[in-house]
Design a protein around this nucleic acid. Structure first.
Lengths: 312, 312
DNA sequence: AATCATAATAGCTTTTATTGATAGTTTTCC
DNA sequence: GGAAAACTATCAATAAAAGCTATTATGATT
C-alpha cells in the first residue's frame, strides 16, 4: 500500500470515473487503473464496483475511502510541519466566501494579501455556507469566510469583524420618517429578502420578531443581489436590510435612504472558519491577520448584538 | 513521500541507530539510509542529526516522527477495515491489563482464548490505567482490561464482571471479631494500600469515608503486590482489602482472616475497554465473550455497589 | 449491428528501491 | 596514541515498480 495508491483511490471515488480520475491525478488511465487494482489485490477486496455505470463504491470501499482521506490528509501535514519550521508561507490555498461578503470584502484584502505573500497561490470560490462547511470537511477548501456562529464540531471559527445591519428605507415607507431603527419596528412581511440559501436572509429572519408570522406573499422574490433589492425597494415594494459594508458604495441619493439601528445595532459576525485539524495554519493565520487589519479601518468599533445566521 | 519511508524513519527514531533500524525493518542498512535521505531531501530538512552519537532527532524531526507514527497507524487501519469486513479473526492483537487484574484473570481465559482463536497473536502488556488509556488512544493497544467507569470520551467500556472487595483482617485487628464488614467501619488510616498508581488503591480511598482524613503515617508503603500487604497485615500493621479473585488462591490459614462486606458489597467494575472507533472489533468481541464466560463461573452473582476507580 | 464511452490488458520504457561491496567517520578500548 | 570496532554514506549493479502508448474488452446507446 502506498500513499499514491490511496490518492488514486480518492480520485476515483471523487470523480466516479477512472479516466477522469487519472487526468486529475496527472497520470494515464492504465497507470491509475493498475495501481487501484494492485491495492485491491493486496487487500484482497473490491473497493469499486465496476459493473455499475457510473462506477459505484462498495460498502467496504466507503470505509477505505474515508480512511484513505484521513491518511492522505495526515501525510500532507508533514509538509506543513516543514513549512512551519521554515516559516515558509506559500503553496496553493483555497478560500471559500459566502456571496454576501464576497463583493465587498474581497477587494479590500486581496491585493494586500497577494503582495504580502506572493508565494501563496490563492484560489477563491463563492459558495453558500452549507457548501463551505461540506468542502471544509472534505478538504476541498482550506478555509472560508462565513457568517457565524455555526457551532460545528470539526470547524474552528475566528471572528474577523462584526458587521452591523443597516436599513434601506425609502421615504414613502411607513418607517420613512424614523430617525433610527429598532428591531421591534421591523415586520418581516415588508422586508425584501435575498433568496433562500443566503445566510444573510436567515440573519434577518432571526432578527425579526418571531411572533409576527412570515406569511407567503403575493409575490416571490428570487434575487441574489442587494442591487435588485434596493431597486425594488425604491419602487415601493418594501424596505430592505443591508450589511454595513454593502452600504459604502451606494450613490449619495441612495445613501439618504439608509437608517442605522439604535445601539446596540444588530449585526452579523463574519469569521474565518477552517477545519480544526489546522492544516495550512500558517497561511490561514496570515490571511486572518491581513483581513482583520484592513477591516479594522473600514468598520468603526461599536456596540452590536450578534444575530445567528442559522435557519431555525 | 512513501509509507515505507515513514516506517524507516520511525525505526531509526526508535532504535537511534540506522543499522539496527534496518535490521528490524528487514532491509539492508544502505536501503534504509538512502530512503531516509530521500525523504529528507524531498522535505529539504534534516530529520536526524547524524553528527551526534547515538544519533539524535532534530527538533522538526520530533514533529515529523510524531506525525509519521500517526500516518503509519492510520495506514494499518486499512487492513483492519478489510479484516472486519471479512469477519476474519486473526492477526496481532495487543491487550493491556492493569496489574491487580493480570495475575488472577489472565490464567483464567488465556488458554481458552488462544485455543479458540489460534490465528490471533495475542500480545499482553501490564500497564497502569493511565498508560492503558494513553496507549488505546495512540494505537499501541487494541483493547485493555481496567477498572471502570472511566468515562473517557474516545473509549468504550464493556463491563466484564463486578468484583467484590474482601477484607483481610487479622484476628488481633480491632475489627477482628466482626462477622461482616461495613464501609463505615473502615478507617483509611489502618488499611494497607498498594502504591500510588494502582487504581485499586483509589477504589479503596473512594470507599472509605472521606470525612476521616487521610493522614500521612509514620511509615510509607511502596508495595505493588497484595502478597506483601497480607504479610504486613499479619505483622499487625493494619488490615487490607483484596479484590475477590485475589482471595481464591490464598492458603487456608489466610482464608480464615477474610471477611466479606455486608450486602451490597462494595465492588469494582472490571471492563474491557477499547477505542470507540471499534477497530478489530471482531477480536475484541471474541475476547469479551471468552472472558465473560469464564468469569461467570468464578464469581457468583450478588448485589454490589460499584466504587469509582478514579482518584479525586 | 454500429458507435461511443470507459476500463482492462499487453508490451515496453523509465524510474525507483534494494543489494553487496566498500569507503569514510567516529567511538571505544587497550 | 593507535588499533579495532561500530556505524553511516557512497557506488555500481540489479531487481522491482510505476509509468507510458497502443490495443483490446465490455457494456451501454443509438
Amino acid at each position: 500500500m502506498t500513499i499514491t495508491q490511496l490518492q488514486y483511490v480518492l480520485a476515483v471515488a471523487e470523480y466516479q470515473n477512472f479516466t477522469l480520475a487519472a487526468e486529475k491525478s496527472f497520470v494515464t488511465q492504465p497507470t491509475l487503473s493498475m495501481q487501484v487494482q494492485k491495492l485491491e489485490d493486496e487487500l484482497d477486496i473490491l473497493i469499486f464496483d465496476r459493473s455499475k455505470k457510473p462506477i459505484a463504491i462498495t460498502e467496504v470501499g466507503m470505509k477505505i475511502v474515508a480512511q484513505a482521506k484521513n491518511i492522505v490528509n495526515e501525510a500532507n501535514r508533514i509538509q506543513d510541519i516543514v513549512d512551519q519550521e521554515k516559516g515558509f508561507i506559500g503553496g496553493e490555498f483555497t478560500l471559500g466566501i459566502i456571496p454576501t461578503v464576497m463583493p465587498t470584502l474581497l477587494p479590500m484584502f486581496l491585493k494586500t494579501f497577494i503582495n504580502k505573500y506572493p508565494k501563496v497561490n490563492l484560489i477563491i470560490k463563492e459558495k453558500s455556507t452549507e457548501n463551505l462547511i461540506r468542502n471544509i470537511q472534505d478538504g476541498h477548501l482550506d478555509a472560508a469566510i462565513a457568517a457565524t456562529p455555526l457551532e460545528i464540531e470539526f470547524i474552528k471559527e475566528r471572528p474577523l469583524y462584526y458587521e452591523p445591519f443597516v436599513g434601506y428605507v425609502p421615504a414613502q415607507h411607513r418607517l420613512g420618517n424614523a430617525n433610527q431603527l429598532i428591531p421591534d419596528d421591523l415586520d418581516i412581511n415588508d422586508i425584501l429578502l435575498l433568496r433562500d440559501g443566503h445566510c444573510f436572509r436567515d440573519n434577518i429572519i432571526n432578527l425579526c420578531d418571531a411572533s409576527k408570522s412570515f406569511k407567503d406573499d403575493h409575490f416571490q422574490l428570487q434575487s441574489g443581489s442587494f442591487e435588485t433589492l434596493i431597486n425594488l425597494s425604491n419602487e415601493g415594494l418594501g424596505m430592505t436590510l443591508l450589511p454595513f459594508l454593502n452600504t459604502l458604495e451606494l450613490d449619495d441619493r441612495k445613501k439618504q435612504n439608509l437608517k442605522n439601528f439604535q445601539s446596540p445595532s444588530p449585526a452579523r459576525e463574519v469569521s474565518l472558519i477552517y477545519h480544526k485539524s489546522e492544516l495550512k495554519i500558517q497561511i490561514t493565520n496570515a490571511l486572518y491577520d491581513v483581513i482583520s487589519s484592513v477591516v479594522r479601518g473600514a468598520i468603526a468599533f461599536q456596540d452590536v448584538k450578534i444575530i445567528s445566521p442559522l435557519s431555525k
